[in-house]
Design a protein around this nucleic acid. Structure first.
Length: 245
RNA sequence: CUAUUAACUAAG
């Protein structure tokens, strides 16, 4: 059984959705009973595909066959809703967890924040952060980074930038993902200054740049028609030994 | 043995 679990999860990482489902079916045909881990592995496959309906069906199947979904099952399913752009369903799953007397952990909440973030429903994302705190969870980098994305997609760049201070106040240091996210909101001439300011902040904080950040910054320059600065950044990137992709 | 985050690229 453990072999099957591993294979299914690995096929998921390789994005071999159909193969993974096939292996799962074959397992049943050979009379091997799937465990929670088996189901969770398959759920993680659906998650990567954003196959929301299949994930929901599998959850039902778990209950039907007497295998109780756990936090990981729900975490994967919620993340599946994010990838499938179904933020309302991700919230519905949190409600369902509550009904099943399961306490959502940070994975679940963060995935839901991500789902809301992609959809730009930033007030829901804020509400989720509150839920986390109220239930005794400590929001982490994922929580705040996803929250910043929610504000960006929600059309509120100012609030996105405020997330920087809010996380520091709570003892979470922004990382390369945080800045990578924020660099995306730098459109127009004033946005360019913000982008360069963020780059300085990163330097001061000793956060190493990567390709994503450079690409985001360069994109910001291009949107502001400042190809001269794009070029400077490009040279700097090469000087730091970061390979373009 | 299983789960959560950023850029560019395609479509529009």
């Amino acid at each position: 059984e453990t072999s099957y679990n591993t294979v299914i999860a690995d096929l998921g990482h390789a994005m071999e959705i159909d193969l993974a489902s096939e292996v799962f079916r074959e397992m049943g045909e050979r009379g091997i009973a799937p465990s929670v881990v088996t189901y969770n592995s398959l759920l993680s496959v659906y998650e990567k595909a954003g196959a929301v309906d299949m994930a929901f069906n599998l959850l039902d199947e778990m209950y039907a066959s007497g295998v109780k979904p756990d936090e990981i099952s729900y975490g994967s399913s919620i993340s599946c809703c994010a990838k499938g752009k179904e933020w309302e369903k991700s919230l519905a799953l949190l409600v369902r967890m509550h009904q099943e007397h399961l306490q959502p952990n940070l994975y679940c909440i963060n995935a839901a924040i991500h789902a809301c973030g992609l959809a730009g429903v930033n007030q829901k994302a804020e509400a989720l952060l509150e839920v986390a705190v109220k239930t005794g969870l400590e929001p982490d980098l994922y929580s705040y980074n996803n929250l910043a994305m929610a504000h960006i997609n929600g059309g509120d760049p100012e609030q996105a930038l405020e997330v920087l201070d809010r996380m520091r106040e709570n003892g979470i240091d922004p990382d390369v993902f945080t800045y990578g996210t924020l660099l995306c909101i730098c459109e127009g001439p004033e946005g360019l200054d913000r982008a360069l300011g963020l780059l300085d902040e990163m330097r001061e904080a000793g956060i190493p740049m990567n390709v994503v950040c450079y690409t985001a910054a360069i994109t910001a320059c291009n949107k502001s028609q400042r190809t001269d600065i794009s070029w400077q950044l490009w040279k700097q990137m090469n000087k730091e030994g970061i390979k373009p992709n």
